[in-house]
Simulated scan of single mutants.
Amino acid sequence: MAKVTLDRLRKVYPNGFVGVADATFDIADGELLVLVGPSGCGKSTLLRMIAGLETISSGELRIGERLVNEVPPKDRDIAMVFQSYALYPHMSVAENLGFGLKLRGAGKVEVDRRVREAAAMLELDALLDRKPAALSGGQRQRVALGRSLVRQPQVFLLDEPLSNLDAKLRAGMRVEIARLHRQLGTTMVYVTHDQIEAMTLGQRIVVLDKGRIQQIDTPMALYNRPANLFVATFLGSPKMNLLWGEVIERDGLRLKIAEGVELPLQPDPALRAVVQGYVGRQLTVGLRPEDMHLAPAGPDRLPARVEMVEPVGNEAFLNLGCGGCDLVIRLPPYGLPAVGDTVHLGYVPERMHFFDPASELRLDGAGDARNREHGTAPAGAHAVERRAVGDT
């Protein structure tokens, strides 16, 4: 096991494109850390830099106390599981599991022992004599995991290992990987674009967009306190609802979304002065789908038109239009309104999230007043990365 340290790690391609911009964070010894973001955000590039499969343009990468910028992949004491299973079709499961060890000169007794240990851990004991063609997708992925497991590396790197599996198998393999990590206690870095995988597997999550770190934190801290609009709308299914408009003061602070459509604002005391400073200016307010609900018509309710009803079994999603904003709310799957109906929405005031529309940063008390006074970089800029990493 080993700690992994990234210090201003940067990847710039010959055409000038910045794949990863100044990534700085530590992966603790024994931690399962997830890199997540949309396609092209730099997560796989960052993983491949740790593996040694991509050259590092600048910055330092350490595994344990050793600087490994120029160390070949085979000498970094890491094992990597790829999106494709990459099994040898002519070899049995046992031969696939032990092939890497044989290449490294391990003796027959040692190879056999490690193969059987890995097979037992992954419940592959009864499949050791089968060829890959006789295995299901989930079994093949377990063999790919086992092939890395027998190496007993300091760090496991997993690059979207479940993306080729169907939904049921993905759920099962998530449990397998989490169990495996608890059992081994080995440092793992896991790349995915699937937020469900990220939220359920990661002890901490690094959220990336366009090569830059947006925020690093525990899954629920990211969900409950997103640092900016990108994180707020990327994590969560359905995504966070955003309402925007001008802050006015009438019977307290209100967000004027459209003519006759106003949302009362009730920031907590520590944030009230900051929101007060937006009177006469634009503000973005976020509410999760579970923090809004149907309510009787009233002066402090939001009128909305039902655009679509999505029953998904144990719950239903209402897609709504409200003053030019698209909203989704999560409801029990009975007594639902029909498409075209006008409904009224209540909300949980203490679950509101406030964002500056220009910088896209979360408003969080006194620090935000300073940001407005001195100017704040956009959400994709270095300022967000420094702030997000500094908060961890």
Rank of each mutant, 00 (worst) to 15 (best):
G59Q: 09
E259S: 15
V18C: 07
F354L: 03
L229K: 15
T284Y: 07
G346R: 07
W244Q: 15
P73H: 11
H181A: 09
A51F: 04
L320G: 05
K168R: 15
V207Y: 05
G260L: 12
H382D: 13
A358H: 11
N69T: 11
P332M: 12
I177S: 09
V343K: 13
T45P: 07
S136A: 06
P289H: 04
R140L: 04
K3H: 12
A144N: 09
R174N: 09
N15V: 00
M352T: 09
A270D: 14
L287C: 01
T284W: 05
F156I: 05
L242C: 06
L87C: 05
A383K: 08
N319A: 13
V285E: 10
A270M: 05
L263S: 08
R170L: 07
I248S: 10
F234N: 05
R212C: 08
V348G: 00
A366N: 00
R140M: 07
D364L: 02
P153H: 07
A79L: 11
R182N: 03
R351S: 12
A79M: 11
H181D: 11
A338M: 12
Q215D: 09
V109E: 15
L169C: 04
L294I: 08
P264E: 12
E373K: 00
R142D: 04
D22Y: 06
L158M: 15
I50N: 10
I213Y: 04
G346L: 02
V143E: 10
L363P: 02
L265F: 04
V34M: 09
T392K: 02
R10V: 13
E262H: 11
A51H: 07
K131H: 13
W244R: 15
A198M: 03
K11T: 06
G52R: 02
A273Q: 12
A273H: 08
V81P: 01
T233S: 14
L283G: 04
V109Q: 13
N15K: 00
D29P: 07
A221Q: 14
R212E: 06
M91I: 01
R174E: 10
G324A: 09
A232Y: 06
A28S: 13
L127F: 15
T5C: 09
R362N: 05
V285P: 02
G40M: 06
P72V: 10
M308C: 10
R113G: 01
I50R: 11
P289V: 01
L229V: 15
I213R: 05
G107E: 06
D356P: 00
R114C: 00
E70A: 13
N228E: 10
L169M: 13
L127D: 11
E31T: 10
R10F: 03
R142V: 02
H374G: 01
R130M: 04
Y334H: 13
A21S: 14
N314E: 15
T186I: 14
G298K: 13
R362W: 03
A21I: 01
L101G: 03
V4E: 12
